[in-house]
Write a protein that binds this DNA or RNA. Structure first.
Length: 145
DNA sequence: GCCAACGTTGGC
DNA sequence: GCCAACGTTGGC
């Protein structure tokens, strides 16, 4: 089981949109590093849902429910998407400021490479953020409030 | 709204 | 295959 973090501008696609649609494809990624991360995703992997620009905080958890497949809209045939399903909202959103201020999270890709839109999260980081966000377990179940 | 950081493109 | 120019992202 691997952990990830995906970013979205809430103006374009917010956590509330994700909850409403439950399962959606995560497309539009046109960056090799991000695409490679998507290819490494496996069914059942979990990802933090991060709001960039507006909010700048981790607001929820999604599960990868379909592994990487090509995007028919991408004529180069190089890029694709995965399906993600909303799992749980963080009782307390974890802000970028908090992450930056936390020595245990200072090495996160979110801090080091803020522009990467799909990034890996280590188990230690996952646990730490889950704690800060008020999630009881790393895999909290499927209760969306 | 500005601008720094960084990924991508394209000319050579 | 290098690298300058350009475009985009995202924090502030």
């Amino acid at each position: 089981m691997n952990y990830w973090l995906v970013k979205s501008e809430p103006v374009k696609w917010s956590w509330d949109d994700q909850v409403k649609s439950k399962t959606t494809f995560w497309d539009g990624v046109r960056n090799y590093m991000a695409a490679n991360n998507m290819k490494a995703m496996r069914n059942g992997d979990l990802a933090f849902f991060y709001h960039s620009n507006e909010g700048k905080e981790i607001v929820g958890v999604v599960e990868i429910t379909k592994e990487f497949y090509l995007d028919p809209k991408d004529e180069t045939g190089k890029f694709g998407m995965v399906d993600v399903t909303a799992v749980e909202k963080l009782p307390t959103p974890v802000t970028l400021a908090q992450i930056k201020a936390d020595p245990a999270l200072a090495d996160m890709v979110l801090v080091k490479n803020s522009r990467l839109s799909v990034q890996p999260v280590t188990p230690a980081e996952w646990k730490r953020i889950s704690g800060l966000g008020g999630l009881v377990a790393a895999r909290p179940g499927s209760t969306i409030s």
